[in-house]
Simulated scan of single mutants.
Amino acid sequence: VVWATFKLSQVFFIKSGVRLTKSEMTRGDMPFIGATEFNNGITEFVSNTNASLDKNILGVNYNGSVVENFYHPYECIFSDDVKRLALKSKNYANKWVYLFLKTIILQQKEKYQYGYKFNAQRMNKQTIMLPIDKNGEPNWEYMENIMKKIEIKQILQIIDYHTQKINH
């Protein structure tokens, strides 16, 4: 597999979250994504909605737990401390490709510690290494297939574990 460098802005549309203070929040069922490293980024459940309403997207922290990021297949709204990364290649904007990219982006975590914010300008210019196809474009199919294989392997390990528990 051949890999090449891409800027995040070549691969994603980078969109902002919207500030929502604790005093403005109303309890509800809508996940609110904040700059945390826990609970898939969900910090509250609200009934509020705003321009950050999105789904099938990566939420990437640029404050708080910087560079930590989560895949959100469900509708949610995002704090202004979280950028929304939407894959430009709509044909491959699926769970497996997003989970592959989540891992690739996390490799930048160490770089953005101690006050060096992962802000919009740095995010646009940040490079990541991706597998490429024969045309030098990101090989989305490869990324999807590798993550499907990992998922199947995990499922089989869980089934094997539970089968062993039953048989003992």
Rank of each mutant, 00 (worst) to 15 (best):
Thr103Arg: 10
Gln107Ser: 15
Ala86Phe: 10
Phe45Arg: 03
Lys153Leu: 08
Ser79Asn: 13
Glu144Leu: 00
Phe100His: 12
Asn119Lys: 02
Ser16Glu: 06
Lys111Ser: 05
Lys134Gly: 03
Leu53Lys: 13
Thr127Phe: 01
Cys76Glu: 11
Lys125Trp: 01
Val97Lys: 09
Val1Cys: 13
Met129Arg: 10
Tyr74Phe: 14
Phe6Met: 07
Lys117Asn: 09
Phe118Val: 07
Asn48Pro: 00
Arg19Glu: 12
Lys90Arg: 13
Ile77Cys: 05
Gly115Ser: 04
Lys7Met: 02
Lys88Glu: 06
Gly17Pro: 00
Glu37Gly: 13
Ile166Arg: 15
Phe38His: 15
Glu141Val: 06
Asp133Val: 06
Val82Ala: 04
Asn135Phe: 06
Thr5Pro: 05
Val18Thr: 13
Tyr112Asn: 04
Thr5Asn: 14
Val82Arg: 00
Ala93Asp: 04
Gln154Glu: 15
Gln154Cys: 14
Gly115Val: 05
Leu53His: 11
Asn61Trp: 01
Gln121Phe: 09
Leu58Ser: 09
Asn94Cys: 12
Leu101Gly: 09
Gly136Val: 03
Pro138Met: 03
Ile77Gly: 09
Asp54Phe: 08
Tyr92Trp: 10
Ala120Lys: 15
Pro131Leu: 06
Met143Pro: 06
Lys83Asp: 12
Thr36Gly: 00
Pro73Gly: 01
Ile105Gln: 09
Thr43Tyr: 08
Glu24Ile: 00
Ile33Leu: 06
Gly59Ala: 07
Lys22Trp: 09
Tyr116Trp: 11
Asn48Gln: 10
Met25Trp: 08
Gln164Trp: 02
Val18Cys: 06
Gly41Tyr: 05
Gly28Phe: 01
Thr26Gly: 05
Leu58Ile: 08
Ile42Pro: 02
Lys153His: 09
Ile155Leu: 14
Glu44Leu: 10
Asn63Phe: 12
Lys88Val: 04
Lys117Gln: 09
Trp96Gln: 08
Lys153Ser: 14
Phe118Pro: 01
Gln107Ala: 03
Lys95His: 10
Thr5Tyr: 14
Thr21Pro: 00
Ser23Lys: 15
Arg122Asp: 03
Tyr74Gly: 06
Tyr74Leu: 09
Phe45Ser: 03
Pro138Arg: 02
Met143Thr: 04
Ile158His: 11
Trp3Ala: 10
Tyr112Cys: 04
Arg27Asp: 15
Lys95Ala: 11
Met143Glu: 04
Ile33Lys: 04
Met147Ala: 03
Glu141Ala: 13
Arg19Pro: 07
His168Cys: 08
Phe38Leu: 14
Lys95Arg: 13
Ala86Val: 13
Ile150Ser: 10
Glu137Thr: 00
Leu20Ile: 03
Glu37Gln: 11
Arg84Gly: 05
Ala4Met: 12
Ala51Leu: 13
Asp80Pro: 01
Val82Pro: 02
Phe45Cys: 08
Thr103Val: 06
Cys76Asp: 05
Ile166Lys: 14
Lys149Ile: 12
